[in-house]
Design a protein around this nucleic acid. Sequence first.
DNA 1: CTTATAAATGATAACGTTAACATTACATTT
DNA 2: AAATGTAATGTTAACGTTATCATTTATAAG
Lengths: 330, 330
Amino acid sequence: MSTLNDVAREAKVSTITVSRVINNPEKVKPITRERVQRAMDKINYVQNPVAKALVSKRVGIIDVYVPESIDLSNPFIMHLLVGISEELSKQMYSFLIIRDRKHEHRCDGYIVTGLLKDEIHEMYQYALERKRPIALFGHTDNEEIDCIDVDNIEGVRMITEYVLQNGHKNLAMINVNEEKDYTLDRYEGYCRALQEAGNPSGEHVMYAENSVQGGYEAALRILRENNETTAMICATDIMAIGAIRAVTELGLKVPQDISVTGYDGLGHHLLSSPAITTVCQPVYEIGRLLAQTLLKRIRGEERGVKQSLVPALFLEHSVAGINKSKEDKI
Amino acid sequence: MSTLNDVAREAKVSTITVSRVINNPEKVKPITRERVQRAMDKINYVQNPVAKALVSKRVGIIDVYVPESIDLSNPFIMHLLVGISEELSKQMYSFLIIRDRKHEHRCDGYIVTGLLKDEIHEMYQYALERKRPIALFGHTDNEEIDCIDVDNIEGVRMITEYVLQNGHKNLAMINVNEEKDYTLDRYEGYCRALQEAGNPSGEHVMYAENSVQGGYEAALRILRENNETTAMICATDIMAIGAIRAVTELGLKVPQDISVTGYDGLGHHLLSSPAITTVCQPVYEIGRLLAQTLLKRIRGEERGVKQSLVPALFLEHSVAGINKSKEDKI
DNA sequence: CTTATAAATGATAACGTTAACATTACATTT
DNA sequence: AAATGTAATGTTAACGTTATCATTTATAAG
């Protein structure tokens, strides 16, 4: 591999002149510039970004930290990564997916996601020690951290309200059986909507694994325990797909007999037929925003901490009003 | 940020001794080692991997090149990335997703995917110039390139044969309307199975966009053009989901009236009810293998080019035998 | 107590680039 | 023609590490 020095020798100029041709061409006389260009072409020069990074202290890489507990092939993370990726590459940056932090890498900043409260604090310390900025997907009480989160409480409240407004009175929620922030938030949104509507028939929440199978089983349990139920608010689209399968297998129609709503809106809701009414977390946009914020922070263009809560988007597909024919069938 | 020199000064030894404590601790006397360790802890030393990379000429990063034409949020790429990621991080490597090659990075090798014939050649030249090894997901006639591919011809042949063995005689294929290798391979597999079975009713292929909607429309067209059809071989699971939706909407049952098979086996086949019989491309495993091969090549442990074709895995869920009740319904 | 040998440590240079400052060349003004 | 200013180019050092070879110190052998 040839170096700046090789080019310099070939073009009979000094190393720094070659460097200038690359980085500040306007500072080099056109004739010299040409000569250097030809020399570069001749010996097939390719810049060594490591050497450049050593002196400039910028590597052009962002570490995206996704803890091992999160499945990378999950569309949530995927869409986030796509958003991050597109914004970064637009600004000539790349990203590295980090699953554990044992192996030190050089990067210019961190984007982190899927962390619990104290993990966030730990990550913050880690970044601080290395004097690199951090941008978080999620929320935190640490007011020094730039972060963006989806307003999931409001998202679930909204879709529940919508179902209530369609005349449903006996709702049940299918939530994920993990004690995570996002699980609690969805429960909270569900409760708020019920309270606002005067809480017609109390809260019914069934917890299950976040999978098609989990949704399927939860729906069966709900219908067995309380066949008054006419609407199911699912905490994820995947669970909604399972719930619909269960309802259909019992000979009931979705949405005529039972309404089933999802949550996430990342593509799975379209795979069910009929497509599921859901709430979309604008994860792709959040990825881009996180990347933008971080790059601004790196360049010192961002002043003051940026913490924001973005709304979830309502995606209506099919929630029928209440239908009294159901009782006959079960 | 503190450097080796800072540690050296603190511990009253030379820089190189500190370096040895990190890289070859057995070459340093225990007492000195202890002292250096304490100094490192005291001033919170963190190695600078860029400087290390400059001299060692290893950066510990693999560039995974996914051209912009491929959607990153597609589960195929995702599973591949997960496989690559897990194998690399096990060996203390990281990876960088590259979407265009304009921005030069330092890496130790390339994993490439989704390239056309001449793009592969171009990429090979690119890697060669930089003296870095390359591992390809796909196949090529260039015998210098390590590569792994799925035997999709055999995969489609296998699932088609299975459908034929279940008594179906009027098959139709729903293929992707793009002129890519993988599209041609699937067509080829379908034809082979038909030929082996004596080609009872000729080839019927409908081309459509690779989406739920595409599969839906293709299935409708097939049933309109030829209502003898009792089985649809879809080139992707997503299209199969659409096809099932179309068949169901026409009042026909899957799989009793019409069998619908998928292809890919990356999760989507489970989202339909009933789950789709499909063929699984072991993409995760391939990702790991690619990473393994590449790292061996980097370390000089691999001799001779490694080109392999791995079989696709048959995943049976529900393909009923032919059912004569269909004609009454349409 | 030398001397030979091995273990531990150190001095220097190198990796390939850029920043900061220094010099030279050339054009413009007086 | 000398003085001044600016454009173009060059010299040196620095970034933080490791490799190579040199030196010192400790250990064992005679």
